[in-house]
Simulated assay, not measured.
Amino acid sequence: MVVLNSSPALNKSAIFSGVPAIRLSEPGSDSLLVRACEDLGFFKVTDHGIPMELIAKLEEEAMKFFASPEEEKELSGRKLANPFGYGSKCIGSNGDVGWVEYLLMPVTSEPFSMAFLMQPSASSFRSALNEYISAVRKLACQILELMAQGLGIEQTDVLSKLALDEESDSMLRLNHYPPCLMLQEQNGFLTGFGEHTDPQIISVLRSNNTAGLEISLRDGSWVSVLPDQEAFFVNVGDSLQVLTNGKFRSVRHRVLANGWESRVSMIYFAGPPPGEKLAPLPEAMEEGEQSQYREFTWREYKSCAYKTPLGDNRLDLFHK
């Protein structure tokens, strides 16, 4: 059962105007990225090079998919390997729920293909996914290389190579938060996706022109982030917090649904290979600085993350 939220703190989060906006081609963007990751763990990038036409095309195709009959979406989802595919309301296997439906798919080095998308009627969806995944993965790697450069790491691909590895555990998630009709007369909001941090390295987010995303500031307060049709938003994930020994902050965030507008978001999660050992990078640490985390593999951390409730602080289990 999905429960309506009536908390004033949840319904009336202040609009946040302090999201760092970074033009990737400008001199000094590497330093600005590092500062944003240290201060907030969240920023937006412009001058990203991804055509607006491509973004609009994938949003259109995603809406077509989510508008199809429930049985058709579920059948299509079952053709994918668990835990990937179509899902609705349930988020994970630990009792978390939200006013959301989604399509979750792996990203590989090969052109994207899913059994149900091989049908001629879905060829435009498949084509849009392939083009978008290629473009957003390139953008993620550009951002990761600028981060390494800003940290003063000589090997600037030390982070991006994790996302480009043939065994990289990266994913694309399409989320749809439909209008909740029972909210229209109550002027309220509903938890679309509960508060959490992303376990991967970074998440690159694009949404349609509908509000709902909120982030938690260092003082624990929640603020609303307005969409920006010219930008991509980027979250620092748990893995990057570990790799930087806590210098970069993995930001807690959530999404609220409403009674009037559909929200569609497309999130690329840049993940390392399953066997990759995660520990603070020596190059990112000061002389004499002690590691805050014990070494663990991405497979170990992912297993832990998906066995715990959505809002848990999973990194607590890996602190020294």
Rank of each mutant, 00 (worst) to 15 (best):
R218T: 13
N258T: 02
F269T: 05
G85H: 02
K44C: 12
L278W: 05
R23D: 15
Y86R: 01
E286C: 15
I201S: 07
L144I: 10
L144R: 05
E261Q: 10
A140Y: 03
F125C: 02
C304L: 11
L75R: 15
P20Y: 04
V242K: 00
I15K: 03
F84W: 06
I55L: 14
G192L: 04
S25I: 03
I55V: 15
E60R: 05
R314H: 15
A257D: 11
H48C: 12
V204G: 00
M171C: 06
E286T: 14
E166M: 09
L310V: 12
A257H: 04
L213F: 02
V264G: 01
K307P: 04
S76M: 12
E230H: 12
V236T: 07
R299Q: 15
Y132K: 03
L75M: 15
V100I: 11
V107W: 00
G150P: 03
V19G: 11
T197Y: 08
S7E: 12
L317D: 10
I91D: 03
R254H: 08
N313T: 08
F232Q: 01
D47H: 10
A284N: 12
S123H: 07
L317H: 13
P273I: 05
S250C: 01
V225K: 06
F65E: 04
S168E: 06
E185V: 06
T210H: 02
S224P: 09
F189Q: 11
W298A: 02
G98N: 03
S76K: 11
S113W: 07
A148Q: 09
I267R: 01
Y293C: 06
L183A: 07
F65T: 00
M105R: 03
L129N: 01
F233T: 00
V45S: 06
S76T: 09
P273G: 05
N313Y: 13
G95A: 08
I267W: 02
P20A: 08
A211T: 06
K302N: 09
L75C: 14
V136Y: 00
R314I: 14
K302W: 09
W260P: 00
H176N: 08
S121Y: 03
W260A: 09
K79D: 09
Y86H: 11
E295W: 08
F16D: 13
P280V: 05
L205S: 09
L243V: 00
V264F: 11
Q184Y: 13
K247F: 09
L190D: 00
S291N: 11
E214M: 01
N11H: 09
R254N: 07
L174H: 06
P69A: 12
P51A: 15
